[in-house]
């Protein structure tokens, strides 16, 4: 059972709705449900995560039942059903990356950020988690940061430290 995290109201801007409309135009008439995944990405980029309120709004916009949105959002790993740090560092933890040290990077992040996988640092800036193969095995270890999904390759503990410092300055 997923618990409701928040009931705060959600408004989609006219600009966002315009982008939804653009996406719907890609599919034949009546197949607007196809827009669900791309629209959820847009909403998450805007709000940082997907609250039930936000998902209900998406359902209303697409004229589908709310459960159809929950089913989808909870199936795919990219959608966050609870708030995350501003920067979610997602490190590949699958075989090929582990052959070249991905586990060390994950351990290092845990010490460095002082939180466990999936938690948020007290300043609200960082979360991290191991994710499955990111299709960059030849450049491992790798990590990505949404919502742009910028890629960082051939990581070392030093380059990760540098990245964290840069992100702190950026925020």
């Amino acid at each position: 059972m997923l618990k409701v995290e928040e009931h705060s109201p959600v408004e989609f801007s006219a600009d966002l709705i315009g982008r939804f409309d653009e996406i719907i135009a890609r599919y034949p008439g009546g197949k607007q449900k196809s827009a669900l995944l791309p629209i959820l990405h847009l909403v998450q980029a805007e709000l940082g995560w997907l609250s039930t309120t936000a998902m209900d709004k998406v359902a209303a916009y697409l004229q589908i039942r709310p459960i159809e949105v929950y089913e989808v959002a909870s199936f795919y790993t990219m959608y966050f059903l609870k708030p995350q740090g501003k920067f979610m560092l997602e490190v590949c933890r699958t075989g090929p990356c582990c052959l070249v040290g991905a586990e060390k990077i994950l351990d290092h992040l845990e010490t460095r950020l002082g939180v466990k996988e999936g938690e948020v640092t007290p300043d609200g800036l960082f979360s991290f988690r191991g994710v499955e193969c990111l299709a960059a095995c030849g450049y491992g270890p790798v990590l990505q940061i949404g919502p742009e999904y910028t890629f960082y390759e051939n990581l070392t503990t030093e380059s990760v430290d540098q990245l964290i410092e840069d992100l702190k300055k950026k925020s």
Binding site: K31, S34, A35, L37, V72, F75, T77
Partner: peptide, 29 residues
């Protein structure tokens, strides 16, 4: 011809062709 790019949502199984089609229809993979 029109060509569109569709993003997935994070699921290896959507590489299986019928799961991919389900996903493209806005459903679970």
């Amino acid at each position: 011809l029109e060509l569109y790019v569709q993003p997935g949502g994070g699921a290896y199984i959507c590489g299986e062709e019928t799961a991919l089609l389900e996903s493209l229809e806005g459903k679970r993979g």
